[in-house]
Computed example of a mutant assay.
Amino acid sequence: MISMFGSSGRLAVSLIFAFVSVFILCEYVIYYPVIMRCSWPHIETEDSHSPLRALFLSDTHLLGAIRGHWLDKLRREWQMERAFQTSLWLLNPEVVFILGDVFDEGKWSSSQDWEDDVRRFKRIFRHSSDTKLVVLIGNHDIGFHNEMTKQKLERFEQVFNVTSARILTIRGVNFLLVNSVALHGDHCPICQRVEEELHKLSHALNCSFQTQLGPVGQGPPKKMFD
């Protein structure tokens, strides 16, 4: 009986050890060899400054209170968090861009649900002060053009400190950030404001004075923009 109990005990310990090992491998370790396959391209520069390291992510679609099951959210967000945190540790980007559709239900979430979604986002995508996180607006965050409202737009802009059109300059590199949902072209108040801001930015970049040569015999160069 003692011998049988001892064998059963060793078997139980072995199974527990195997389970814990597999869990650690699949939920922690596996992200490192996968992301280590990625690397920054080697770029020759004329001066001593290193190239800007920018990481681009898109469509995180954090599930909301309406369509998101708690177990599905737990699993997805854990994987997303581990992948992001491992990427920060291994790749050490200077700036991370998330190109819209941060949330899956931002277009119809209540104020309480919105606050919960934002809290989870900040936990998943936490980062040090050495890394800048830039979040852009997507249609799932504020709704498609016909669903977009000033209230939805402003709550997103306030949380993520963004505007619908601006230029972000990091170490001499210009990034033009635009709310594409507001480019419908129907002169709605939000769209009109974004279009006006883009015209100002084009002048700031001196784009509005660029010219192109017309075909031979058709006169002097003409403006590309009005």
Rank of each mutant, 00 (worst) to 15 (best):
V102R: 01
V96N: 07
W89G: 04
F97V: 02
F144I: 05
R119Y: 08
Q151T: 10
F160H: 04
T149F: 15
L133Q: 04
G138E: 03
S111L: 14
R171L: 09
W89P: 01
Q158F: 05
G172C: 06
D141Y: 06
V134G: 02
I98Q: 05
D117V: 00
S164K: 02
L91V: 00
R119F: 08
D130Y: 07
E105L: 06
F121C: 06
Q112R: 15
T149H: 15
Q151K: 12
T149I: 11
V159A: 14
F175E: 09
V95M: 08
E81A: 10
I98R: 01
D117H: 08
F121D: 03
G143T: 04
I142V: 08
D101R: 00
S129N: 12
V102K: 02
V134Y: 03
E154T: 11
G100Q: 03
W114S: 02
L88T: 08
L90R: 09
L153D: 03
Q85E: 11
N146S: 12
F125G: 02
E115Y: 12
N161E: 11
I98E: 02
S128Q: 15
E157W: 03
L168V: 07
D104T: 03
V118A: 08
N92H: 14
F103S: 01
S109K: 00
E115Q: 15
I137C: 03
R120L: 08
H140A: 11
I124H: 08
F144S: 10
H127E: 13
D117Q: 12
T131C: 14
W89K: 09
N161S: 11
L99A: 03
I124E: 05
A83H: 10
I170Y: 10
N92M: 14
Q151R: 13
S110C: 07
W89D: 07
L153I: 05
E157D: 11
L168E: 14
V95D: 04
T163N: 04
I142M: 00
L153Y: 07
A165W: 01
G138T: 05
R166L: 07
L136R: 00
F97I: 01
N146L: 06
V118C: 11
E115D: 14
D117K: 03
F84K: 01
G106D: 00
S111M: 12
S128A: 13
F160R: 02
R119G: 07
I137Y: 01
A165D: 00
